[in-house]
């Protein structure tokens, strides 16, 4: 760093280093717990353990350039996982937000009964930790212990196999939807409560029914909240891990590389290969960033455009 005299553009200004002191804690935390780990991950992803020496050989860490990235991107299991994750998102995000919006609108109608009770009932699954929820659903899915199948068999109907190769994606998505609807419903419901009641009265005077009010007045007014929940849900989708990882040991249909984070976990904690895991993490992070920016740009123009 060049030695330079302090630059004093405004020498009379009072306050001295106060703003920097106030900012320091945030900056230090940001640097230590975000920027340094990210930098370290990138650095790790460019290195690998390679073997040298005789006998069994000794692993030493060395720079390997983009080798880890090449193997990640050419690993069909990882790419399959990425595609599966996108499919999962296509199922989860619309159905979760659709249900959340439906419940929020229903709870916001004037003649609703047991409103508080239903709200808590719908919200409750969100309070169940993902791993526990997956175990619960796992028991419901596993053919030989599933009470759902018992009911089907009791009625003499063919019992569905929730963990069959074709259906397992929906079964996993169902766990995600079950856990996520409540939270999104509360967000949307809160947004609805913020809408001035006069709007509805005006609509009623104009002859609108409840359905029309919901679709033509309420939904457009809470669009920003819908978009926010959509973005949160999308990012949660990209991080899907708990549900499939919990089901993995229970069934043959969920592999250890079912979604990208599972591959990363396996590489780092089972295969003791932190470098491949770092490269896969960087790829996933860049993908998440790209998708988030793209969606935000698109939606901002459409939803928030008129506010500008």
């Amino acid at each position: 760093m060049p030695v330079a005299a302090p630059v004093r553009r405004r020498p009379r200004r009072r306050g001295g280093p106060t703003p920097y002191v106030l900012m320091a804690p945030a900056v230090v935390l940001l640097v230590l717990f975000l920027l340094v780990p990210i930098g370290y991950t990138v650095w790790l992803s460019l290195r690998a353990n390679r073997v040298s020496g005789g006998g069994l050989g000794i692993r030493t860490e060395r720079f390997v350039g983009l080798e880890n990235y090449t193997s990640v991107l050419t690993d069909s299991a990882y790419v399959d996982g990425l595609l599966r994750m996108l499919l999962y998102g296509l199922i989860v995000v619309p159905s979760m937000l659709g249900l959340a919006l439906l419940f929020a609108l229903l709870l916001d109608t004037p003649r609703v009964r047991f409103g508080a009770f239903s709200r808590i009932g719908i919200f409750l699954p969100y309070a169940v930790p993902g791993v526990i929820a997956s175990l619960l659903w796992g028991f419901l899915y596993l053919p030989d212990v599933s009470p759902i199948r018992d009911v089907f068999e009791g009625l003499g109907l063919p019992a569905p196999d929730f963990l069959a190769p074709g259906g397992v994606l929906f079964s996993v998505a169902n766990i995600g939807v079950w856990g996520g609807v409540g939270f999104n419903m509360i967000v949307l419901f809160t947004a609805l409560r913020g809408v001035p009641r006069e709007m509805y009265d005006a609509a009623r005077v104009d002859g609108a029914g409840e359905v029309q009010i919901a679709l033509r007045v309420k939904v457009p007014l809470i669009m920003p909240a819908i978009i926010m929940t959509a973005i949160f849900s999308m990012i949660a989708t990209l991080q899907v891990f708990n549900e499939p990882a919990t089901l993995q040991p229970l069934t043959d249909t969920v592999s250890q590389t079912w979604v990208p984070l599972m591959t990363i976990y396996r590489d780092a904690f089972v295969n003791a290969d932190i470098h491949s895991a770092a490269a896969a993490s960087v790829v996933l992070a860049l993908g998440t960033l790209a998708v988030s920016v793209a969606v935000l740009t698109l939606l901002q123009r459409r939803a928030f455009g008129r506010d500008r």
Partner: peptide, 23 residues
């Protein structure tokens, strides 16, 4: 490295210190 910690340099200083200590 400079021993004067001027205002603008403070931020950089923190960052450098962090990096210097961590890396």
């Amino acid at each position: 490295m400079t021993s004067h910690i001027h205002r603008r340099g403070f931020l950089k200083g923190v960052a450098t210190l962090g990096a210097a200590a961590a890396v």
